[in-house]
Design a protein around this nucleic acid. Structure first.
Length: 279
DNA sequence: CATATGTCCTGAGAGC
DNA sequence: TGCTCTCAGGACATAT
């Protein structure tokens, strides 16, 4: 599902629209219950058509197209949303389209099979009101001291705490398991039981795994949903150490089979040999 | 305040 | 074979 590496890949894929002018906005009629688009089409067009794209940014797991005015077009893919410049995987779940006057890329599409995502036109102020308090520092750039400060007093298991976007923005269920395996930390370890070298290791693994996954353009899981902006599958699923590998031999030690447990209603994968439980 | 749980949604895959 | 059921996990509302 789109986590930081997947959303960053989408962001990079549509980045060439910077400098291009929006010609038209379309909300694509869809048989399904429509995804959230705010404001309505009339207002959306009034504020966005004719505007030039100033930048393409990312806020946690959201893609943000910043316009020369104060407005931003914010895509929140949630589970199955894709931001594309190529034709989408199917016409069926197309939701939204931006047309450009000229330039290398003629369109940006928003496609969303399950429709839990959204497309919103927001001012900087609206974004700050919506997410200023809810979205923490970006997981790719957060420094060790800040990372630790934001998590170390929690009594929650480290795997669960890593998913808290208020503490740290961008980590989702897949990469939380992956990075704890690299750091050799048992996912159930309470944050407040972790020591200096643990925090250093987790922080290093956080950055290392996310950067590696960005280089591979994210993970396309067995359902095949995730695609980059060109509708191509990612490559990082071939490098997963534990995620979705329950029962398979650990790639790191070859001594144990990967285990699957449930934490906070989410699947967690780990190797008991590489990530021993603390007593 | 911190933490836990239920909800939205579709389609793949399991099981009968 | 075709039906029904469960599950996947983003963010957020509500409950404890």
């Amino acid at each position: 599902m789109p986590e930081l590496p997947e959303v960053e890949t989408m962001r990079r894929g549509i980045a060439p629209i910077v400098g291009q002018r929006i010609e038209q906005i379309e909300i694509v009629p869809c048989e399904r219950r429509p995804v959230l688009v705010e404001p309505g089409l009339r207002q959306f067009r009034k504020r966005a058509v004719g505007q030039v794209v100033a930048a393409v940014e990312r806020l946690g797991k959201r893609v943000v197209i910043r316009l020369a005015s104060d407005d931003r077009i914010v895509f929140e893919p949630r589970m199955t949303g894709l931001v594309l410049v190529a034709d989408p995987p199917s016409a069926e779940h197309l939701r939204f389209r931006i047309d450009f006057v000229s330039g290398r890329l003629r369109h940006v599409w928003y496609w969303d099979r399950r429709g839990l995502g959204s497309v919103r036109l927001m001012t900087a102020r609206q974004m700050a009101e919506a997410w200023g308090e809810r979205v923490g520092p970006d997981a790719l750039t957060i420094e060790l001291a800040e990372f630790r400060r934001r998590l170390e007093r929690s009594r929650r298991p480290i795997k669960v705490a890593l998913l808290d976007q208020k503490a740290l923005a961008g980590v989702g269920n897949l990469y939380a398991s992956e990075l704890l395996h690299v750091a050799r930390i048992h996912p159930a370890t309470p944050c407040d039981a972790l020591e200096d070298e643990d925090w250093e290791g987790i922080h290093a693994a956080l950055r290392g795994v996310l950067e590696e996954a960005v280089r591979y353009e994210g993970s396309t899981l067995s359902d095949g949903t995730y695609r980059n902006a060109l509708n191509q599958v990612g490559g990082y699923q071939n490098h997963h150490r534990v995620y979705d590998r329950a029962g398979e031999w650990c790639r790191s030690c070859s001594k144990n089979q990967v285990e699957r447990v449930v934490q906070a209603q989410r699947a967690t994968f780990f190797c008991r040999n590489c990530q021993p439980e603390r007593l």
